[in-house]
Design a protein around this nucleic acid. Structure first.
Lengths: 113, 113
DNA sequence: ATTATATTTAACTATATAGTTGAATATACA
DNA sequence: TGTATATTCAACTATATAGTTAAATATAAT
C-alpha cells in the first residue's frame, strides 16, 4: 500500500520541478483557463502542454471542467498546501534548532564573563 | 543565461520529489550526519545514497563538511525557504482570489434581499 | 607497511520524462 | 452533411533518473 501521502508529495514536487508547469500554475492562479489559452504563450506543441496539464492533474493541482469541446483548467490549492506544510515543518524545525544553538552560545558567552 | 532562479527552483523541487531524499532531509533536520549515518536506515547501497546526497547538494539543500575520511552533511534552509516562498505566493494569491469571489457572492446575496 | 574504514567514481541497466509529429475523437458551426 | 476547432492519444526519440556492482581514493589505525 506504499504510503499514499508520500506518493502525493512525490507527485506534487515533481509537478512543480518544471518551469513550464510552474508558469501554467501562475497563469491559473490569475484565472481559470482553457487548454489552448494555457498553451498560447509557449513555444511548444499543444500536445506537450496537454501532457504538462496531465502531470499537474495527477498531482491534484488542477481541476478540469469539460465544457463541450473545451476543457477549463482551474488551480486546486489543497496540494499546494500539502507541499507548503511539508516545507514549513522542516523550516520551523531547523530555525528552532538554530535558536537553541544560539541560546547555547549565549549561555557560553555569559559564562566567559 | 537561462534564468538562474527558475533553474534553482527546478533543482529544489526535483530534489524534494523523492521519498528517500525527503527522509534524508528529515534526518538532517534533527542533526547533522555523516554519509554512512544517513545511509544506515535504508535498504539501498551506499553509492545510491551518495548520489541522493549529491542531488540535495546540487539543489543547495546540503552543506558538506569534509572531516578527514568522513563527510558531515548539514541541512541548508535557504533553498527550503526559496521553495516555500514560491508556494506561499501562489497559495496567498489564490486565497485572495477566493476571498474576493466570496465577498462578491455576499454582495449578490445582500442585493437579493 | 598493511589493513580497515568512509566515501566517490565508473560502467551498466531499467524506467521515466519531455518533447515531437500525425492520427483520432468529440463538439460546434454553416 | 461537411468542415473547422479543441483536445487527446499513440508511436517514437533523446535524455535523465534511480538503482546496481566493482573498482578507485583517501584517511585512520595497528
Amino acid at each position: 500500500m506504499v504510503n499514499q501521502n508520500e506518493e502525493n508529495l512525490n507527485e506534487i514536487f515533481h509537478a512543480l520541478a518544471n518551469e513550464t508547469r510552474r508558469d501554467i500554475v501562475r497563469m491559473m492562479a490569475l484565472n481559470e483557463r482553457t487548454v489552448s489559452e494555457l498553451a498560447e504563450p509557449f513555444d511548444m506543441s499543444l500536445a506537450a502542454i496537454s501532457k504538462h496539464i496531465k502531470v499537474l492533474e495527477k498531482a491534484n493541482l488542477v481541476e478540469r471542467i469539460i465544457n463541450g469541446r473545451t476543457h477549463i483548467c482551474r488551480l486546486k490549492t489543497e496540494s499546494l498546501s500539502q507541499a507548503t506544510e511539508w516545507l514549513n515543518f522542516y523550516e520551523k524545525f531547523w530555525s528552532k534548532r538554530f535558536d537553541l544553538l544560539e541560546s547555547e552560545l549565549m549561555k557560553a558567552k555569559r559564562k566567559e564573563n
